[in-house]
């Protein structure tokens, strides 16, 4: 079976044509770099995505701190992860790189701050 997909690993956005049989890649054209092969394999077997969202900050100069996952997770767990992150709050100050949830949903990834939020000036 021929599958067409767009590699999302970099801004090139290569359009891949992948010949697939029983979840194995028989041939692949259109990838400008070796990452394309890896992406196609992952995409056929178990597509993964990273997500970025925000967490409430108590006592911060901003109401939210932006967060992301340390690694992509299976696509079908994205909304479970959003629910999990929504349950979390943190206290200012927070640092970029600070881990807010370790091993979230037992998926082996952490939820990590991507921004610094100082305490609110009194």
């Amino acid at each position: 079976m021929m599958k067409r997909m767009t590699c999302i690993l970099c801004p090139n956005g290569c359009k891949l044509k992948v010949e697939v049989s029983d979840k194995e890649i028989l041939s692949l054209v259109g990838a400008k770099c070796p990452k394309g092969q890896k992406f196609a394999h992952q995409e056929i077997n178990n597509p993964h995505r990273n997500i970025a969202t925000s967490v409430l900050v108590n006592g911060g100069e901003l109401p939210l701190v932006s967060v992301r996952l340390t690694a992509p997770i299976p696509k079908n767990r994205i909304f479970d992860m959003m629910e999990e992150i929504k349950k979390t709050q943190c206290d200012a100050p927070v640092k970029s790189g600070q881990i807010l949830i370790k091993n979230a949903l037992d998926l082996g990834v952490d939820v990590v701050c991507t921004k610094e939020v100082e305490q609110e000036a009194r």
Binding site: P11, N50, A52, S66, V67, R68, S96, T114, K115, E116
Partner: peptide, 24 residues
């Protein structure tokens, strides 16, 4: 600061950063 999604810095830093991380 408001572009919290990732995908920044792939050309410059060879890794996928969020907007605030790239700015930092």
């Amino acid at each position: 600061r408001q572009c919290i999604h990732d995908g920044f810095g792939l050309t410059r830093f060879n890794e996928s950063l969020s907007g605030p991380e790239y700015a930092k």
